[in-house]
Design a protein around this nucleic acid. Structure first.
Length: 452
RNA sequence: GGCGCGAUAGCAAAAUGGUUAUGCAGCGGCCUGCAAAGCCGUAGACGCCAGUUCGAUUCUGGCUCGCGCCUCCA
């Protein structure tokens, strides 16, 4: 039985699917006008892990992660770059896919784009207008009437009267109530637009997720996820739109992953303290980045720094070293094994990956002692459920970094020096290699090497 | 002003009303020509003050500090 911390109830709850054996999950994805940063990577990796675990647990997973390909920032960036919006968004969707793949993120079942569902959004807005949850302003904008939806605030725990409208963003003068949010924006000159009953314009930010989730997963589905910063207003507004329009609960479980931080501050575009996935991958192996993310609980904040990544690198190295030289033909998991059981218990408890990973280290310790092929198989199998240790350990340990020295030749020379008891020469060669980032290990089977 | 989250050893990070988390780093040993890797051992922790309890890092209250949200955000 899988337990999930539900933001809606602020409690861990036992997961019960709407349809037996099936999980319908919607996750808010990226707005594509720039390269993804580490915060985006965390969302992708975390929900990939969640989706994998449901799969391992025997569920069919229908995982939808949307792509926002029309919004103010995209329009702004396209103008700045003097390129078409399509050109811009296509390019960054491509870049995002590259990042996701390197990080071992399995493609969601569906990745719908907002611009492909404008019709769905228009009809949803129409329904909301008919049901008096939305109104058309004089300028052709359509707004959601927040006070009409009595449960507004149930997800984020906010009370309408306590909200400070306009605290950080200017209030639109066309709104009847300052808390109302826009469903449809009439287009300004030269802006991309679609025809609608109210004005030539484009959708507001929140409506796409209500429209697309219901289109692919139905009005009522199992899990809705995203970054913690989407809890309010985005997810709150999604609930207001969907539940008002369809008269049923939108999602049973709401999952929010914690922020990535830099120097104890949230990493964000507006603060400018972000690192793109690309820059991080210049310095660290993608699997190290993935491991780093899974080593913390998904709801906890995750402090990003080079030294933390380095720490993760060494830890992951330990796991790969334990698998070195052991032939593994399959990755079947013997769930009867006590450590496999412990792993499962940890994962079932709100996806406690730090605890699950600690089990991997217990296995590594045993394997180092007895070189057990059985345990190595188990280690690889369990790690695979997290998308880890999927490479050949030699490939990981040697790395793909080009080294100009002829390592094999130098090892041979050092071997000869050792035979002649010329340890000074042997050590000189070893130091030379070490300076190039190559560590030698003398084993009973001969000298082997790995990158530092 | 409202709402919420957090504080665990040098660093990172879990669990737990009593008993080894785990990883990196440290210390002692084994192994090694010396290392590396590995193994064995070892040290080091629960922000502060009360309360509940036989017993609190864990539960409750208060305090301090940090972080987040209050219509840009993963």
């Amino acid at each position: 039985m899988i337990k999930i911390y539900n933001t809606l109830s602020k409690n861990k709850e036992t997961f019960k699917p709407i349809k037996e054996g099936q999980v319908n999950m919607y996750v808010c994805g990226m707005t594509v006008y720039d390269l993804c940063h580490i915060g985006h990577a965390r969302v992708m990796v975390i929900f990939d892990m969640v989706s994998r675990w449901f799969n391992v647990s025997g569920f069919r997973v229908n995982y939808v992660r949307n792509i926002t390909d029309i919004d103010d920032k995209i329009i702004g960036r396209a103008i700045e770059n003097k390129e078409s919006i399509q050109n811009l968004t296509q390019r960054y969707i491509h870049e995002m896919n590259i990042d996701a793949e390197v990080l071992g993120v399995i493609k969601p079942s569906k990745e719908p784009k907002a611009t492909e569902h404008i019709k769905d959004m228009i009809s949803l807005i129409q329904t909301l207008i008919e049901k008096k949850y939305a109104y058309v302003a004089n300028n052709g904008d359509v707004f959601y009437s927040v006070r009409a939806f009595h449960q507004y605030g149930k997800l984020s725990g906010k009370s309408i009267d306590d909200l400070r409208a306009g605290e950080r963003v200017d209030i639109d003068q066309n709104k009847l109530d300052e808390l109302d949010f826009v469903l449809w924006k009439s287009a300004k000159p030269n802006e991309p637009s679609w025809d609608s009953p109210w004005s030539k314009g484009r959708p507001g930010w929140h409506i796409e997720c209500s429209a697309m989730s219901s289109h692919y997963l139905g009005h009522h589905f199992d899990i809705h996820g995203g970054g913690q910063d989407l809890q309010f207003p985005h997810h709150e507004n999604e609930i207001a739109q969907s539940e008002a329009a369809y008269d049923c609960k939108m999602a049973n479980y709401w999952m929010h992953n914690g922020f990535v931080r830099v120097d104890d501050e949230k990493m964000s575009k507006s603060l400018g303290n972000f690192f793109t996935i690309r820059t991080v991958l210049d310095k660290f192996d993608a699997e190290v980045v993935r491991f780093f993310m899974l080593r913390a609980h998904y709801r906890s904040p995750l402090n990003y720094s080079d030294s933390h990544l380095d720490d993760a690198r060494l830890a992951l190295q330990r796991l790969y070293i334990s698998l070195r030289g052991i032939e593994i033909n399959n990755v079947d998991i013997d769930w009867q094994h006590p450590l496999a059981h412990k792993f499962r218990e940890a994962m079932d408890d709100d996806f406690n990956t730090p605890e699950a990973i600690s089990v991997l280290f217990e296995l590594a310790n045993e394997i180092n002692k007895n070189k057990s092929e059985l345990l190595a198989t188990l280690l690889k199998g369990l790690a695979k459920t997290l998308g880890l240790l999927e490479r050949d350990s030699e490939l990981f340990l040697k790395g793909d970094k080009k080294i100009s020295l002829n390592i094999d030749e130098m090892i041979l020379k050092r071997h000869e020096a050792k035979i002649n008891k010329n340890f000074k020469e042997a050590d000189r060669i070893r130091t030379l290699l070490l300076e190039a980032g190559v560590v030698l290990e003398d084993t009973a089977q001969g000298t082997i090497w790995r990158k530092e």
